[in-house]
């Protein structure tokens, strides 16, 4: 038993101190995942594949999670701020049941995802 515990514990402890670089990578990953979720939900909603309530809840949840990530890395990055705004627009579209207007937001979010991805790539090369 002891033989397994010790290396496990050591490994755990060394992983404890996360550098700011790792924090950034993690936060960007979460942000990308939730942005992609918002996009998929938006598209599914536009095609009538998911109910309104669920769409709203998931968009709001995406906002919250992305907010959390942004706070964690404490950044005023333009793309991330734009992303937040796009999500807010999407929520409004769903509220007003405007399936045409959301197309614009969907294009927007796609662009922002690409930007975050590029950013993450640069970060990855630096580290």
């Amino acid at each position: 038993m002891k033989n397994f515990l010790l290396p496990g514990l050591l490994l755990g402890l060394t992983a404890c101190g996360q550098t700011s670089q790792e924090k950034l990578t993690d936060a960007l990953k979460t942000t990308r995942s939730w942005a992609a979720t918002a996009q998929m939900v938006g598209e599914a909603w536009q095609q009538g594949n998911v109910p309104d309530r669920y769409t709203q809840q998931t968009l709001v949840k995406s906002q919250q999670e992305i907010d959390k990530s942004i706070q964690e890395i404490n950044t005023k990055n333009r793309t991330l701020q734009n992303l937040k705004q796009t999500l807010q627009e999407m929520v409004t579209c769903v509220e007003q049941h405007d399936k045409e207007k959301i197309t614009l937001s969907l294009q927007q979010i796609k662009l922002e995802q690409q930007q975050i991805e590029d950013w993450a790539k640069i970060q990855g090369e630096q580290s």
Binding site: K29, S33, A36, T37, Q39, A44, V50, K61
Partner: peptide, 17 residues
């Protein structure tokens, strides 16, 4: 492929759509 990692059931719910 979309870059969604499941951190919550809401995300998983999309997989069959």
């Amino acid at each position: 492929p979309r870059g969604i990692t499941v951190d919550s059931y809401e995300q998983a719910a999309l997989m069959l759509t």
